[in-house]
């Protein structure tokens, strides 16, 4: 299964980015292959509006089944993610990627 994280870096001990649309990176962990793929999303800074849909589209291209993030996506992004069938778990904004992954595994994150 592929699990996506909104993050500020691309390692296990990187901080999570609590934002969805304007997250700095998208990090996807494939727990079968045990490997990461990442996307540098920092160009999103240049978008005045519509950051949410743009980031969700990028996320879709990376085809995860689950997204772990902080506050959760806004309305538009939530629509895309729903259409894409990606499950969203929130409340990991203040954690590192590793902590967020453990919290998810232990069912300690809330589903959006």
């Amino acid at each position: 299964m592929k699990i996506a994280f909104t993050t500020k870096g691309i390692e296990w001990n990187s901080d999570m980015d609590p934002r969805f649309g304007r997250t700095e990176y998208i990090l996807v962990y494939d727990d079968e292959k045990e490997e990461f793929t990442s996307f540098d999303n920092r160009d999103i800074e240049n978008e005045a509006h519509g950051a949410g849909p743009k980031t969700s589209q990028q996320l879709f291209e990376m085809s995860p089944q689950v997204l772990i993030t902080g506050n959760g996506p806004g309305g538009n992004a939530a629509t895309v993610l729903e259409k894409a069938g990606i499950k969203i778990f929130i409340g990991a904004g203040q954690m590192t990627v590793n902590e967020a992954y453990q919290a998810y595994k232990n069912n300690n994150l809330k589903e959006f």
Binding site: H49, G50, P53, S56, Q57, T79, V80, K83, A84
Partner: peptide, 18 residues
Amino acid sequence: NFHAVIQLGSQILVFPEL
């Protein structure tokens, strides 16, 4: 230019507010 039209795989999504 407003990300109001997004292609998601084999579907096109329109975001009316954007």
